[in-house]
Design a protein around this nucleic acid. Structure first.
Length: 414
DNA sequence: TCTGGGGTCCTAGGACCC
DNA sequence: TCTGGGGTCCTAGGACCC
């Protein structure tokens, strides 16, 4: 029995999430902005038709927005994350072979004869149960499923790739999954301009030019699966929290608040995933687009004496790392914290020099803090180092309500 | 005025060891 | 003048993804 892979991909996912709770947005141009209301990260088909490209900065779209009455939203990750879970759970209803690949995509393993009708049922069920429209492409490998999905998206919403070569011949090589800008440039220089030419390329030559990654892509195009479904999510290896500031920051005190806040978020993520970190890095940067001011970025690393996910321990380390990075007079635009060398929290090597009693106390404190913050909202209990005014905070001026995760933001039907 | 955030994997080259 | 060979580990940086 043949094993096939379906790629289920939400259409314009963030925009679709906004539409679920705001049906007036249907049929109108809608854009969702990146964090800090910086640039377009999701566009409705109507917005795409107006020529708005992925990643266009908000200030460059001002006239178009005004002229066409485009609806603009800040990113609302609480909402998108929750709706994503609902979509994934719906897919799990059909088969346990679901690999959650990103917030809006899943690879689904299917066996035997799969009809267009079956895919269509999957699609309409997701729409009916979650309100999110998806497209489904089916093929023998992940790379081909990605291509099938593109066709599904432009057509009926589902597509089974039965005659790959005909499709590959009309697909620019840069559209193949895993072929980025650099590889496109290199391949094009050698006359490999379409996916079909890539599929027919000499494997030894590909190995020399693109390494093992390139070989895998070519084999996948030929129908040999090299990228298996990963049904059990691998534990993450690092955890990074960084944000742009709502406006340029010059004070060390503001930087300290931001770093403490990002550290608290990162530590919380670790506790949620039951991980501890051994290494912490802090980085700060000025605006690289501003030609009038010097561009400065720097980072500093601190090793922890024992792996930890304790907010206060990590915050102390982070603030220590920040100190030497700061320069008076620079206009900072961004700061972040990066935790690495992650290990499962329960497998930690006992440290001879650690006071176990205070360690246990610290763990309980975090437990209570997480419980309070979960019940009453993030930031209810926090370190004083995180500040109160937080004037540096990231912009999110057009965020919709967190309809599904906050009681006080429920949709009210008059 | 205004340009996102969070990841992974691979490779080359250096340090080091026997 | 001659100056091994093979292996591992680590790190930085590149490339790519959504």
């Amino acid at each position: 029995m043949s094993r096939l892979i379906a790629l289920v991909d939400s259409n314009n996912f963030y925009v679709s999430c906004e539409r679920v709770f705001n049906p007036k947005l249907e049929g109108r141009p809608v854009i969702v902005l990146s964090s800090n209301d910086g640039c377009a990260v999701a566009r409705s088909n109507e917005a795409k038709a107006l020529g708005i490209k992925m990643g266009t900065p908000a200030f460059q779209m001002r006239d178009l927005i005004e002229k066409h009455q485009i609806q603009i939203f800040s990113s609302n990750y609480a909402l998108y994350g929750d709706l994503s879970n609902r979509v994934m759970q719906t897919l799990q209803n059909f088969t346990p072979e679901v690999e959650v690949y990103s917030i809006d995509e899943a690879f689904v393993g299917l066996t035997g004869e799969v009809s267009d009708h079956a895919l269509s049922i999957m699609r309409t069920t997701v729409k009916r149960w979650t309100g999110i429209p998806v497209s489904i492409g089916l093929a023998p490998t992940k790379t081909l499923a990605k291509i099938a999905n593109r066709i599904a998206k432009r057509g009926e919403g589902t597509y089974i790739l039965r005659d790959p070569d005909q499709v590959l011949e009309n697909l620019p090589v840069g559209e193949v999954w895993g072929i980025g800008r650099q590889s496109t440039k290199k391949l094009t220089a050698y006359g490999i301009t379409t996916a079909l030419k890539l599929k027919q390329a000499d494997l030894a030559w590909i190995k020399r030019q693109m390494g093992i990654v390139g070989v895998r892509i070519v084999k996948e195009l030929r129908g040999t699966s090299c990228l298996p479904l990963e049904l059990i999510p691998q534990p993450r290896k690092s955890c990074c929290v960084s944000r742009s500031f709502g406006h340029p920051v010059t004070d060390l005190e503001d930087l300290r608040e931001a770093i403490a806040t990002h550290t608290a978020r990162a530590a919380h993520k670790l506790r949620r995933d039951n991980l501890s970190a051994s290494l912490l890095a802090v980085f700060i940067a000025t605006n690289r687009f501003n030609a009038d001011l010097p561009y400065y970025r720097n980072s500093g690393t601190v090793g922890l004496s024992a792996p930890t996910n304790h907010t206060i321990t990590l915050t102390k380390a982070a603030l220590k790392a920040l100190g030497p990075l700061y320069r008076v007079g620079d206009h900072y635009q961004k700061a972040g914290v990066w935790l690495t060398e992650l290990t499962p929290a329960h497998e930690i090597q006992q440290d001879l020099f650690i006071n176990h009693k205070s360690c246990e106390k610290g763990r309980k404190l975090m437990e209570v803090m997480d419980a309070l913050n979960s019940q009453f909202g993030a930031g209810t209990v926090r370190c004083a180092a995180q500040g109160f005014e937080q004037s540096w905070r990231t912009k999110a001026e057009m965020r919709s309500p967190r309809y599904t995760t906050r009681w006080d933001e429920l949709l009210i039907v008059p």
